[in-house]
Write a protein that binds this DNA or RNA. Structure first.
Length: 155
DNA sequence: GCCAACGTTGGC
DNA sequence: GCCAACGTTGGC
């Protein structure tokens, strides 16, 4: 069992949007970064837990929790010429972009702000706190995950 | 809106 | 295979 963090811009897709999807489930399409793709394709398992992180918004931070509900999916938007995620080099035989589906688990009472995450002396490995890290999907170490979850659930 | 940092592209 | 130029990310 591994732990992850998925960034999303709440203006386009927020933790509330995930919660309101049928079955609280959404294919995480549109990722066009190889490192992030490789995490999804090669390292995720069903029931892995994932923080949903809101970026590029008023209070960037961890907004909720989801779990990986399906793995090994092909991102359909790569084949759609009208999509902004269209990839002309992808073919049905040889897709380039893979994804997983996430299912809503929990929305925190308030967002755990990035500013607070950065103040935690024990959170050092998380990509978010490392300078220049722009990964949209990143692993979270088990002990850091546990610590962040506890912080986020504080009333 | 700024801008630092990063990933990708493409000419050579 | 190098690397400059470009586009994007994302906090502030």
């Amino acid at each position: 069992m591994r732990y992850w963090l998925f960034k999303t811009e709440p203006d386009s897709f927020s933790i509330d949007d995930l919660a309101h999807r049928p079955d609280g489930t959404e294919g995480w399409d549109g990722v066009r970064n190889y490192q992030a793709r490789n995490f999804m394709r090669d390292q995720m398992s069903v029931d892995d837990l994932a923080f949903i992180y809101h970026s590029s918004c008023k209070v960037p931070g961890i907004a909720g929790l989801a779990k990986v509900s399906q793995t090994g999916l092909v991102d359909p938007t790569q084949f759609e010429p009208e999509s902004k995620y269209y990839d002309p080099k992808a073919t049905l035989e040889q897709p380039r972009w893979h994804m997983v589906a996430l299912t809503f688990v929990e929305k925190f009472n308030q967002v755990l702000p990035l500013s607070m995450i950065k103040q935690q002396p024990n959170i050092t490995k998380l990509g978010l706190v490392q300078k220049g890290s722009r990964l949209s999907i990143m692993p979270v170490a088990p002990n850091e995950f546990e610590q962040l979850l506890e912080l986020a659930r504080k009333p």
